[in-house]
């Protein structure tokens, strides 16, 4: 480990001051420390710990949506009834990050800024039109999540910029959503393939569909062809299959120890189909439990959206 200096900030301004002189932020450490110990990337020379910065904590409702502080943990998200009911795909994703020991320490801000193409919450945040607030010593800007990721481990954020919060607008009535993951193990797993669907129904017709694929390209991204296959349809099995096939067709997976590109592409269709079908079920008011949440967080199942 190469970290030489450490400071624990108690306010955003203190954190930004340290970052302006080259320090990098650390919150739960569940990616940074593991990555350093595994030899993937050494810890930054200068660290500024932000876990004590109370203004970055918590989840709050505001006019027209929800705001997640950068330090909101995955456990916080799954325990939030607003997140479970309105942003069910995000709760699906946070509920399966790591194990309960990861979810109590790991934060949404760290998850996003680590920018893994296999991370669970990216697809839901993109599909829900989340906007990140990036602050630096010289100012504040807002970046849509769909524009944030530029490659594996890379974002548009400058070195001195800190993600302070994520704002997510409330979905329209009639919306159901789901994040589904292919996994080999129930916990401490990273997506081999992941898919997000956010579907808004108007009567029996799909008014708006958002589909994103995870661990299938250098960045998590929406698939316009898949969305077009569903938009205006009657949400029939044929439309769901067409959308799932389009998502698989848009994937550019790698082969690694966890799966071949060919296998990932085949599973992309399966996982996208599952995500869309569950999103439609939820949009129609059907119950489909968030994985793991009752056992691990004592939260009520997020069924109807």
């Amino acid at each position: 480990m190469s970290a030489q200096s450490y400071t624990a900030a108690t306010s955003v301004d203190e954190a930004l001051e340290a970052m302006a002189t080259g320090a990098r932020p650390i919150a739960g450490g569940t990616d940074l420390v593991v990555g350093a110990r595994g030899g993937k990337a050494p810890l930054p020379d200068a660290l500024v710990a932000i876990h004590r910065v109370s203004e970055l904590r918590g989840i709050r409702e505001q006019e027209g949506g929800l705001v997640l502080g950068a330090l909101a943990t995955h456990a916080d998200i799954v325990a939030s009834s607003s997140a479970c009911e309105l942003f069910t795909a995000l709760a699906d994703a946070s509920a399966i990050v790591g194990s309960h020991a990861t979810r109590t320490a790991g934060t949404i801000g760290g998850n996003v800024m680590n920018a893994s193409p296999a991370m669970e919450t990216g697809g839901p945040l993109i599909c829900f039109d989340a906007v990140a607030t990036l602050r630096s010593a010289s100012g504040t800007r807002r970046v849509a999540l769909t524009d944030l990721f530029t490659g594996p481990g890379r974002t548009v954020a400058e070195p001195g910029e800190l993600l302070t919060e994520l704002a997510i607008p409330t979905p329209k009535d009639g919306t159901g959503s789901c994040y589904a993951r292919l996994e080999y193990r129930r916990q401490m797993e990273i997506a081999i393939v992941g898919a997000t669907a956010v579907v808004t129904l108007d009567g029996g017709t799909v008014r708006d569909a958002r589909i994103a694929i995870t661990a299938l390209a250098p960045t998590i991204h929406r698939v316009a062809e898949a969305e077009q296959a569903l938009n205006g349809s009657d949400a029939s099995d044929a439309a769901v299959h067409a959308a799932a096939d389009a998502a698989a067709g848009a994937s550019r997976p790698i082969s690694d120890v966890r799966g071949s590109a060919q296998y990932r592409r085949a599973m992309a269709a399966v996982l996208t189909r599952r995500a869309i079908s569950t999103a439609i079920t939820r949009a129609r008011g059907g119950r489909f439990p968030i994985p793991a949440s009752p056992a691990l967080h004592g939260a009520v199942n997020g069924g109807a959206a």
């Binding site: 650390i26 569940t30 593991v34 710990a49 194990s99 990861t102 109590t104 320490a105 401490m188």
Partner: peptide
């Protein structure tokens, strides 16, 4: 590598893999 949980401790009452926490 934060896979096995053998290092788990409670930090302010919450479970944490201590190999992966500064």
């Amino acid at each position: 590598d934060s896979e096995c949980g053998a290092c788990m401790v409670l930090l302010d009452g919450q479970p944490v893999n201590s190999c992966s926490y500064l």
